[in-house]
């Protein structure tokens, strides 16, 4: 029995490793393809059979991508928009989540339900109404218009995520602070936020990624090339008649770098945050 158990366990472990390896390969192959293509001279980009190691590697695509068409400017625009969105969305959604988690007020569950329903409306359906709204608010053609609408778009999910995390924070801690005379703002700022760091990191990564990658809204409202963000700049390498895939991929690798940095910074917190969110969700 004992031997059989061990064999069974080994088999299970082997199976797990095989599945995980397959998963890793599936996840990494496109990434490897992108990186290798970005080093290929323009002509040999799409080869069949696929070659992962370019015969004549070159950094020319990176130089062209970075120097052509104000790419550095677009990069900076994206940084401003993504960081602005992350800060604004985190601050607002954590305050909302705190209110939903700790305060009793009339209409609380209806409001929370509305937030969840708004999450389920496809973004494409809201494109034209949002465009008209942005026009009336004079937010067209401005980076603030991007920040405002990305923030709005992220509030629902973040509030939902943080709400379930906040509920798990023992209320005894807050009661102790109340005894010491702390008001709601102090409790939110001094207690809840520091304790919720993993959940905040998770929300930060999702929000940053969402704002960093967003294409449709940015394309729709920005009409001034000096305000383009990276996804539009990358799409502009795809022409009507031909696409310079080497440039597209080199630009994409450049665009991924900050995301990797953000991920590395928040990663430890991030994993904890996913688990925390999962319990209640």
């Amino acid at each position: 029995m004992v031997v059989g158990d061990r064999n069974q366990r080994r088999a299970l472990m082997a199976l797990r490793l095989i599945l995980l390896t397959a998963g890793v390969v599936v996840m990494l192959l496109p990434f490897a393809y992108m990186v290798s293509t970005s080093f290929k001279p323009n002509a040999m980009v799409l080869e069949i059979p696929v070659k992962f190691f370019p015969q004549h590697p070159t950094v020319a695509n990176y130089v062209t991508a970075w120097t052509s068409n104000r790419f550095a400017r677009y990069f900076l625009n994206s940084v401003v928009v993504a960081i602005g969105t992350t800060l604004a969305a985190l601050l607002l959604s954590s305050m909302m989540a705190y209110a939903f988690a700790r305060f009793r007020f009339p209409g609380r569950s209806i409001l929370f339900g509305l937030i969840l329903i708004a999450l389920m409306v496809p973004t494409m359906m809201m494109l034209i109404p949002q465009f008209l709204l942005a026009r009336d608010l004079h937010l067209l053609n401005s980076l603030w218009g991007l920040v405002a609408f990305y923030t709005g778009g992220n509030l629902g999910f973040n509030t939902f995520l943080l709400h379930s995390f906040f509920q798990d924070i023992p209320s005894e801690l807050e009661e102790a602070m109340v005894v010491d005379g702390a008001g709601p703002w102090t409790r939110y700022w001094r207690l809840i936020l520091p304790l919720a760091r993993p959940a905040l990191a998770t929300a930060a990564i999702f929000t940053f990624l969402g704002a960093w990658d967003e294409f449709t809204w940015a394309l729709t409202i920005i009409n001034d090339p000096s305000k383009y963000t990276l996804p539009i700049a990358i799409a502009l390498f795809q022409g009507q008649h031909s696409t310079s895939w080497g440039l597209v991929f080199a630009a994409s690798v450049i665009a991924i770098a900050p995301v990797l940095v953000i991920f590395a910074i928040f990663q430890r917190q991030f994993v904890a945050g996913i688990a925390a969110g999962a319990v209640k969700a």
Binding site: L127, I128, F131, L132, R135, L140, L219, T220, N223, D224, P225, I232, A235, L236, Q238, G239, Q240
Partner: peptide, 25 residues
């Protein structure tokens, strides 16, 4: 003259949206 380049595959969609919002060039 302000030249604005828009990806070809998205220009049609962007024109139609701009028509709705009165934001054509």
């Amino acid at each position: 003259v302000k030249h604005v380049a828009i990806p070809y595959n998205d220009l049609h969609q962007k024109l139609v949206t701009a028509v709705a919002g009165g934001q054509l060039p």
